[in-house]
Design a protein around this nucleic acid. Sequence first.
DNA 1: GCACACATGTAAGTTGTTACATGATTAC
DNA 2: GTAATCATGTAACAACTTACATGTGTGC
Lengths: 179, 179
Amino acid sequence: MSLRHALLGALADRPRTGYALLKHFEQSLAYAWPASHSQIYPELARLREAGLIAQTDTGPRNSRTYSVTPDGRAEIRRWLGETDPDRRVRSDAALRTFFLWLLEPEEAALQLEAERAYWRGVLDEFERIQVEPTGDDRKSRTFRIALEGGIAGVEARLAWLDDAIAEVRSPGWVAREPD
Amino acid sequence: MSLRHALLGALADRPRTGYALLKHFEQSLAYAWPASHSQIYPELARLREAGLIAQTDTGPRNSRTYSVTPDGRAEIRRWLGETDPDRRVRSDAALRTFFLWLLEPEEAALQLEAERAYWRGVLDEFERIQVEPTGDDRKSRTFRIALEGGIAGVEARLAWLDDAIAEVRSPGWVAREPD
DNA sequence: GCACACATGTAAGTTGTTACATGATTAC
DNA sequence: GTAATCATGTAACAACTTACATGTGTGC
């Protein structure tokens, strides 16, 4: 139930409306745990019913501001400290690399180049965020650590994509097995 | 429907039984698209019904060997060439890094050290596989490319974890906000 | 004979996606 | 006024997890 704890953690940072949580998921959390509004709103209702969050304000356009309760804060700490992370990762993009041999060499190269263009864009965005000034409290530092993790991962992927593209464009790849 | 195409791709490599596919998912494909037997067997039945695979052999212990049909081979190629990869990635482990500030510094460091130990083990396994001799046909090369992608990703993560651990153990982290 | 790995399946429940649906405020 | 963004919800469906369930060959 990671979504539940993602919401609790985001509300432990500060109270937010459902819509603000949605935007937070689209921006920061999108690379760790994507979630859509049709998942978030019902989950907020369940968290509220369970007493882990409470609606502490009502704003314009029927927006509802939620805050974590002491129970909710205890629950997110329990989750972080006492449960093992689920280290499984599903990546459609990674899966496709196992099947590169099924494509014509030129087609394989084009696919990998599209990947490279996409992840370059992501890296640009991460680096744009990275230069923004922040505080040196633990929250700000945590965010910078998470961002550095994202950057390191994307940089590694880009370096690997360069190698992979070179390989599928190499004579040794193109020459053999013309299908 | 990545599972469907993961199965088609694995069967395009060579005919396999359901059980062999299961083992293949536990080993190679586990880091890209984990799947359990309760998902694989029903999906094989559906693929067969759709005419994308066919049962080409029956072995001991009621094992069934499946092969891709021409339609199945066309479908995996269509998927690889004509559909965009879903680049979203869900990672419980990555999500948790956003909430490091909620833990006591020592607890945060212990969690990150557990991550480091886990990924070191994965890297050891990848490197053990990497030194095994293989061919230089496209299939073998593709597998090596995928493996190198995995290794690059894990190495980047380990380097980042070293930095992250140093940061949460630094005086600047430990000193402030004693909760 | 018994344990273990092989081999396949179903069922209940949870989680996630896509589509449908509606209303409120702001900017032009 | 009208388009865009804000703001929240539900419903149908697909995908995934966990548990239940059963039978087969091999090695000791």
